[in-house]
Amino acid sequence: MLLRRASGISLLELLVGMTIGLLLLLAVSGLLVNLLGSQARERRQIRLGAMVDASLSLMAMELRRAGYWDSDGGAGTNPYGRIYIEQSGRCLRYGYDTPPNQPKGGQRYFAFRLKLDDAQRGRLQRLSADEAGWKCDAADAKWDDLSKPDIGIIDTLRFTEDRSDHAIGVEVAAHTPPGGEEEKLDIRTSIALRNRPAVEVR
């Protein structure tokens, strides 16, 4: 009587197949981890860029209004006619009158500054005040945050006078908070002063 040879996969073939499958799984897992890490970095960078861009857009809009005075043709000195750059360029004070066709009144004096907290994390802030409270060292409660440390930490805010173009130069440097690969952003721009207020550096 003839014995039939058993058919199937030998132990050696099974081990080789499992090894190849494991190597393929490791390769795919590595690609997936890299893809997810890249997406996380891109999200962090996009959020940081959007935050800084929104702050700079507000600064640009406000500084273009700086110095506006609705004098109704009357004589006198423009109370909003000066911009002050203080604290080695980390704070800028400006003002403007109520735009036409809007009710008069309200706070017309403003400022932007870089504020460091106890952990030395920088934030962009904006002040709205009356003339008496119009100071770079006004109480912290009077300032509104333009940036959030959980999205981006501001390392540098510097305002400079650009006399050749009657403009204000703005430099902002920021980085993402700890918790992943650090992303950095460094922006330099110039904002034209439409109403041509005088700029005083203190």
Rank of each mutant, 00 (worst) to 15 (best):
C91N: 03
F159D: 03
D162I: 03
I20G: 01
S147K: 04
Y96N: 03
Y109N: 08
A60E: 15
L127D: 05
R158L: 13
L25K: 02
V16H: 02
A119V: 12
I187M: 03
S57T: 12
E200K: 09
S128V: 08
G180F: 01
A111Q: 06
Q125V: 07
D97F: 04
A132Q: 14
G152N: 06
A132I: 11
R5N: 14
W69Y: 11
R5V: 14
K148S: 15
L12C: 08
Q107K: 14
A119C: 04
L2T: 14
E161K: 09
E13Y: 01
I85Y: 02
S38K: 10
T176L: 05
S190E: 13
G180M: 08
T98W: 09
R123N: 13
D165W: 00
A27P: 00
Y96S: 05
G169N: 08
V199H: 03
R82D: 14
L127K: 04
V199N: 02
G106I: 06
I187S: 04
L35D: 12
E183M: 12
L185Q: 11
R188I: 11
D186G: 01
V52C: 05
M59K: 02
A132R: 14
H166W: 10
E182C: 00
D130S: 08
A111H: 03
T19Q: 10
I85L: 06
R43E: 15
A75N: 13
G169A: 09
C136E: 07
G30I: 06
K115R: 15
G122M: 03
A198H: 09
T19N: 09
R65I: 04
R108C: 07
D70P: 00
Q45M: 12
E181A: 14
K115S: 15
P178M: 09
L31Q: 15
L92I: 12
A50K: 05
A75H: 05
A167G: 09
G17Y: 13
N101C: 02
L14K: 07
I46P: 00
R126W: 05
E131P: 00
V28G: 02
A60N: 09
L14C: 12
D70Y: 04
A111C: 08
R202M: 14
R41N: 11
E181N: 10
I154T: 05
S10M: 08
P79L: 07
D186Y: 00
G180K: 10
L2C: 01
Q125K: 06
L35E: 14
P100S: 10
G49K: 09
R163M: 07
L23T: 13
V172E: 02
Y96H: 12
A167R: 03
T77W: 02
D144S: 14
M51K: 02
P79V: 07
D137S: 08
L36W: 08
L193H: 04
D140M: 08
D72P: 00
D97R: 02
R188A: 15
G105Q: 10
I85R: 01
K148D: 15
P149E: 11
L11W: 01
K104M: 13
H166L: 09
L15I: 10
W143G: 03
Q45V: 05
L14N: 06
A138E: 14
V199T: 04
L193A: 07
S10H: 06
G37L: 07
Y109W: 15
I20C: 08
L58W: 00
G30H: 01
V52D: 01
P178D: 10
P149W: 04
D70K: 02
N34H: 11
G81V: 06
L25D: 07
D130I: 07
D140C: 00
Y96P: 03
L48W: 01
